[in-house]
Design a protein around this nucleic acid. Structure first.
Lengths: 250, 250
DNA sequence: CGTTTCGTTGATATTAATCAACGAGCGTGG
DNA sequence: CCACGCTCGTTGATTAATATCAACGAAACG
């Protein structure tokens, strides 16, 4: 943590608890993820109840939102940027269990302690919500629980796909499937495009796909050599989507 | 399906839709999983509402409860036996995404179509519930939704563990972790014991752990040679749990 | 402008997959 | 009852995929 704090301070001014001063969203009503995130459970007139308990915050790259085993005092909704979620084995091996994009929620299970770590990939904006206040709101508003369950079920579907990928797909299939999935997920957030942002490092991608950096790098190079993709700064442009779908093994 | 029907018929009489005549539980109140399964959401006096819509059924080994892509007309609660849940790739590769034990629920997301297959491993008893009636009941009873969400979150935690296993663990670690997890899960159902029932075949275990049968077989043999386990009919007895925990890589 | 990090590529090692053979158990049918 | 075919699990030999080790260039950063 000390190390990361240092990076934070180097990148931007940090008034308290890792939150940067770059001004966050002032009110949920103006948030990009208003109709995408859990807050889509609320009617406009209910939003102020929610807004009262959320804290709009910014974090620099590599900031930890929470760590494996830590008390879950807060839950989070990502409003901008990407968060990596991962578990660590005792010998340092890491498995990234997901990337949270804008609109995604961290803490659907309202856990007492977090069972994975969450770190900002690049700079991010999040809504931080005290767990207790949120639990109280969930108790009060049935549609919120329903929305939460919906989110949990979507996460579950994604997790199942990932199990198939990790258990039974080859390196090329994993990378191709990853690119197509990220494309779909970004399409939900922003307008659809063939250029897929990949703000995370090769190490992150490797730890997500159960591969090594070298294998990820080689596979991406191969797809580029085959003219299925073009590597661009912080992302790839998908040239031959049918080719990728064939490679992705459905 | 034709093949499996044949097996069903050979094993037991089958009056309709793959349900065997061996008499199922007559009422939820007498069910082994009364306080373990979703029905634990109900007080005793509410149970008859639930009992009215459930169908207690038996299935022979290899019977399919539902298939990937099929309309989800029913959801299920397992009351006896083990169900394998899996996805198939177009070329036949299979990934088992979970084993459902007594008390487990299939269809927490109340999906319109199933996105995986469910098959009885051995003979099973299940509560089959028409999806529509169940959805109506969930709308009516807030604690049921809460219970469902709790189940979804538990599944999610299991899925995350499995992603770590599939992405980052060695063959021996996978097998050791699998045995320890199965032990814990059986302990929830029946009394705790060092003998872990493994009613599923080696192929099933392999497809769950992202390995081949040969590797599973060799690894089990190695653990047995090391006196960490003893192989018994349809299961293993865990002799050296610390050794297994060390091998299981936390 | 040096230092560090990150991504790429090449050479080699290692793990687990594949290919192959065999024996035990089981149900079927002669 | 025994012989036959079949499935299942085990073990051995070999191969293939990916990990590991190593070197290097480019970009980022202080």
């Amino acid at each position: 943590m000390g190390l990361e704090m240092g990076i934070l301070v180097r990148n931007a001014v940090e008034p308290e608890g890792g939150c940067l001063r770059a001004e966050p969203v002032s009110h949920c009503a103006t948030c990009h993820t208003r109709f995408l995130a859990v807050c889509s459970a609320f009617e406009d007139h209910e939003l102020s109840d929610f807004n009262r308990i959320v804290q709009h915050r910014c974090h620099a790259a590599k900031a930890a939102l929470f760590e494996q085993g830590q008390n879950a005092d807060f839950v989070f909704s990502v409003s901008e940027g990407v968060v990596r979620l991962f578990r660590l084995l005792s010998d340092g091996r890491r498995q990234i269990i997901g990337f949270a994009l804008p609109g995604d929620f961290l803490g659907v299970s309202l856990p007492l302690t977090h069972d994975y770590c969450a770190e900002a990939v690049g700079a991010i904006r999040v809504c931080r919500i005290p767990r207790n206040a949120f639990v109280a709101l969930v108790d009060e508003k049935p549609h919120l629980l329903r929305k939460l369950h919906e989110f949990a079920c979507r996460d579950m579907r994604t997790a199942r796909e990932q199990m198939v990928l990790l258990g039974r797909k080859t390196a090329e299939e994993r990378v191709a499937a990853f690119l197509l999935t990220m494309r779909e997920r970004w399409a939900r957030v922003a307008h659809c495009s063939v250029t897929v942002p990949l703000p995370m490092s090769r190490v992150d991608i490797a730890d997500y796909l159960g591969l090594t950096i070298e294998t990820v790098s080689r596979t991406i190079s191969k797809l580029a050599r085959d003219k299925a993709i073009v590597v661009v700064p912080d992302g790839v442009r998908l040239l031959d989507i049918p080719r990728l779908q064939a490679a992705g093994a459905r």
